[in-house]
Design a protein around this nucleic acid. Structure first.
Lengths: 205, 205
DNA sequence: CTCTAATGGTGACCTTAGTCACTGCAAAGC
DNA sequence: GCTTTGCAGTGACTAAGGTCACCATTAGAG
């Protein structure tokens, strides 16, 4: 895909050619856990188009940590392949997503040779560190109504659609709580006029 | 201090000389908020001896995020000075601590030139990302008794002393809760035979 | 068309932990 | 000495949210 070159114009031209010559592009359907099938083939993903959500499992609880948007990568994969260690987080496509898969063995060389590539991953780490701090703040200080509302706002903003098709159970998973709680709290938000539920999903007002 | 060279023997010799020639070493007393006074003079800290705790403030709540031990640095400072942005976290010495202060303007050059230096900061980011994940897990899934006990265990382990001199109020701050809660929960731990309280502090059994 | 699975809705209940309003105690400062 | 200050301990209360046991509605599969 040629939009790679324009999207990643901040990378050195030589590096972009190099990447394209050894990487593959793969398209994933919606709701597919990526890097599951590739867990032995070592690759580093770079999202070109679409949306990926990253979450963690703690026993039977799950929690959405952040989204990977186009032009972003997954620092957990990055760390995992540099240290040859399993990932502690999971990634699922939120929509149909096109991903560039960089072969792991080329990464250390690119990092050494191309400052822009190195810079890119520092930025990714910085972004995720900040995301995790935000997540901690949310869990620690906000009640469920605020957490849920912010979650919906963010989701709508990222999907660029104020109408969300998602089940209460799904939301509960992403917020690490129970389905009944979401049903209750979303009712509350509805009564406050912040959202509206219909058979087509949840609409933000 | 010459133990810098032995501690950081994984860094290139040239880099170590370079660092020592332009950096200063500063010793901080116990319980001092570091990087407060230096917030205009831009420096990157590298802990040589002692212990620093890093925490975040959310409104009136605080939360201990992780410790910086010898041979470690603070990724938040690193990110803050690269992006010329204020830090979202705070650092306080837990004991008397000796810190090497690297001048900010030298960092980008060292990163480009010395792979081992670059590697060091990737490792720091990776470590803190993992620490934050652990913190999230604790807040989300564990009850206060488990959180408190783990907190005390970790503190004792890091301080290499099973006897901790710390007030209930202090602990409450670091765990982002209220003093009375700690008093209650620590009583519970005592009744379970896990800790013992005396006038000298809390002893882990 | 019927049966089933997924989803949403709800009331009752319980546990956790945050808050309030105190009391007791001991060390430090005057 | 007394008094202030900081820390520990406690009972009573409350709110949030997790759990349980259901029932209703809808969409899809057979």
């Amino acid at each position: 895909m040629n939009n790679f070159k324009t999207q990643f114009s901040f990378l050195e031209g030589e590096l972009r050619d190099d990447i394209l010559s050894v990487s593959s592009i793969k398209t994933f359907e919606k709701n597919v856990e990526i890097l599951k099938e590739e867990q032995y083939i070592k690759v580093l993903p770079l999202v070109l188009k679409g949306l990926v959500k990253v979450f963690s499992r703690f026993g039977d609880k799950e929690l959405l940590l952040y989204y990977i948007q186009p032009m972003q990568s997954c620092v957990m994969s990055f760390a995992a392949l540099l240290k040859n260690r399993p990932s502690r987080v999971f990634a699922i496509t939120e929509e149909e997503t096109e991903i560039l898969l960089l072969p792991a063995e080329k990464i250390p060389g690119w990092i050494k040779t191309f400052p822009s590539f190195n810079e890119l991953f520092y930025q990714q780490y910085d972004m995720r560190y900040t995301d995790l701090l935000d997540t901690i703040e949310h869990i620690l200080v906000n009640k469920m109504d605020v957490r849920l509302y912010d979650y919906l706002l963010r989701k709508a903003e990222i999907a660029e659609d104020k109408s969300l098709k998602i089940s209460h159970g799904q939301i509960a998973n992403e917020l690490g709580t129970a389905r009944e709680v979401i049903t209750r709290v979303i009712k509350k938000l509805e009564s406050e006029g912040k959202v509206k539920q219909s058979k087509n999903g949840i609409v933000l007002l």
